[in-house]
């Protein structure tokens, strides 16, 4: 009887510990994702040029991280999340490429362009911007346009190294290539962007 009670108590304690660990992990994950979600959205938006697509990619990456890697060490979450996101972006590129090829083959390229809502390209003037905000907006737009002109691999290497500050090994893992390739892509990206944006950026 006493043994049974001791066993029950031990299983209750284990259950409590597991619950507390799970709660702690959930809070830590929430904090981690809250800190990374906006930058991830920006990266996905620069890559895809579409807010909805970017949102879907970020959401997928979040889900996959929680499902597969939430039990890993917290220090690994950043590189893992970016690896997942970059895989998702690469898949998106492949799908889009195939879709565009079919569209061109079927002669629907122009029809698709006409479907785009012209109102989306109208600037939002509902909130008056200060000079500083305007300058920042212009700088952001110029930078995003310049980054989007880069080849995809250079774009990835640049954003992961310069913005996310992943090291060469982590960037190589996220991009699925060698460390030498990361260095070359990053170097070329920085020099192309400097040429495109001009010296006033220094």
């Amino acid at each position: 009887m006493i043994m049974e009670m001791a066993g029950q108590e031990s299983s209750d304690t284990r259950w409590m510990c597991e619950r507390i660990t799970a709660l702690h992990r959930n809070q830590a994950l929430d904090c981690f994702l809250a800190g990374i979600e906006r930058r991830a959205f920006r990266i996905a938006k620069i890559a895809t040029g579409d807010a909805d697509e970017a949102m879907d990619l970020v959401q997928d990456a979040m889900l996959k991280l929680v499902q597969r890697y939430s039990t890993r060490d917290e220090a690994e979450w950043g590189p893992l999340f970016h690896t997942i996101l970059q895989h998702r972006i690469r898949d998106w590129y492949r799908r889009t490429k195939v879709r565009n090829r079919w569209r061109q083959w079927l002669g629907k390229g122009e029809a698709f362009d006409e479907q785009c809502d012209p109102l989306e390209s109208v600037a939002d003037t509902s909130q008056p911007s200060s000079d500083k905000q305007l300058a920042l907006k212009q700088a952001t737009v110029a930078l995003e346009q310049a980054v989007r002109t880069l080849p995809f691999r250079q774009q990835q290497a640049f954003l992961l190294r310069a913005w996310e500050e992943l090291d060469v090994a982590q960037t190589a893992a996220a991009m699925g290539c060698s460390q030498g390739s990361v260095k070359t892509h990053y170097f070329r990206a920085v020099h192309t962007l400097r040429k495109l944006l001009g010296d006033h950026w220094l």
Binding site: M55, L63, A139
Partner: peptide, 30 residues
């Protein structure tokens, strides 16, 4: 510039990101 641009993300997008995060955190790990 990129860090500052994050603050310029519109409110509906920020809300959608928050919902996505909450939904992801509610998922049980495999």
């Amino acid at each position: 510039v990129l860090d500052q641009s994050v603050g310029g993300i519109d409110h509906p997008t920020v809300l959608r990101l928050q919902h996505a995060r909450v939904a992801a955190c509610e998922v049980r790990p495999a």
